[in-house]
């Protein structure tokens, strides 16, 4: 699997150092540190309420940490807003698909393009030639991506008419329009049928082969095992373990935290990855 993928450099693309975040009395993320490397899909798993989505929001800038730092591509982005991080190449998708419903698929894609020419009153009026050229370039890219995700025939339709699975595809395509350095995927396979989930996984795998770096939150451990290396396990807002799925499957700590078992386990795994998948709860808090 990993041999197909792009070369991994030693410098992490994103680094979280001692991140903590509380909501009222609830400590969602506690002193959490992790790294993700270019060219890899880093998996983020854990039971419901483990703090995965909060951690993703902290990385993306949608939430500000109470303490700790986020370093991205050589920048300390801790105090940056999400839109500032996005401009550096840090783009996220959402756990629940968020299409811009009363805009066409193409318009959704053009928002993903992050081409800022013509987006102020002055530039809209004075810089018309420039934004027309850029818009044409972005449109051609949007068409290519919509074709890749089998959405081209709906390009001029409103996004609100899409099925749940198509919205997932659009969300991924729209994120790719930004040409992100790092893509944060929050349960991209949630709520879609198994066939489409595997189609989506194929897309994710292919994108990674093309060099796209990602952090992926997912409950379907078979898919995590197929796509991600390394995998980071979160429990109670902290990093519990990290490694390949096969390594984690042998970890007693991980099994305890993920399945809520209290008995100690031997070096031989008590449960297999597929059993983990069956018992893991779906949908995140």
């Amino acid at each position: 699997m990993s041999s197909d993928r792009a070369d991994v450099s030693t410098a992490p693309l994103i680094q979280a150092v001692g991140l903590s975040k509380s909501f009222g009395g609830v400590r969602a993320v506690q002193n959490c540190s992790l790294e993700a490397y270019p060219g890899k899909i880093t998996g983020l798993i854990g039971p419901n309420g483990a703090g995965k989505s909060t951690l993703l929001a902290l990385l993306a800038g949608a939430e500000r940490p109470d303490s700790g730092k986020v370093l991205f591509d050589g920048h300390d982005v801790t105090r940056m807003h999400d839109w500032q991080r996005a401009r550096l190449g840090l783009v996220r998708t959402f756990q629940v698909s968020r299409p811009l419903g009363h805009m066409t698929l193409l318009e959704n894609m053009l928002i993903g393009a992050m081409d800022m020419s013509g987006e102020t009153f002055a530039k809209a009026f004075l810089n018309r030639k420039q934004w027309k050229e850029n818009e044409e370039r972005d449109l051609i890219r949007a068409v290519e991506l919509l074709e890749r995700f089998n959405l081209l025939r709906l390009a001029n339709d409103y996004a609100e008419i899409l099925s749940g699975g198509q919205m997932r595809l659009l969300e991924l395509a729209r994120a790719l329009m930004a040409s992100p350095k790092l893509l944060l995927l929050d349960e991209p396979f949630a709520g879609v049928n198994p066939s489409l989930a595997h189609e989506l996984a194929d897309h994710v795998e292919q994108l990674n082969r093309e060099g796209q770096s990602m952090i992926l939150i997912e409950h379907e451990l078979n898919l995590v095992g197929r796509l991600c290396d390394p995998v980071i396990v979160l429990a109670n807002g902290s990093v519990l373990a990290s490694g390949s799925m096969s390594e984690l499957g042998k970890s007693a700590e991980v099994l305890d935290a993920y399945l809520g078992r209290t008995e100690r386990v031997s070096a031989t795994p008590l449960v297999t990855t597929s059993e983990l998948e069956m018992e893991a709860p779906h949908g995140d808090a």
Binding site: A60, A62, V91, F94, R98, A178
Partner: peptide, 14 residues
């Protein structure tokens, strides 16, 4: 219009 539809999406695209 993107902001009107969902400002979080507009924001996370810069």
């Amino acid at each position: 219009r993107a902001i009107r539809e969902d400002e979080s999406v507009a924001s996370c695209f810069g």
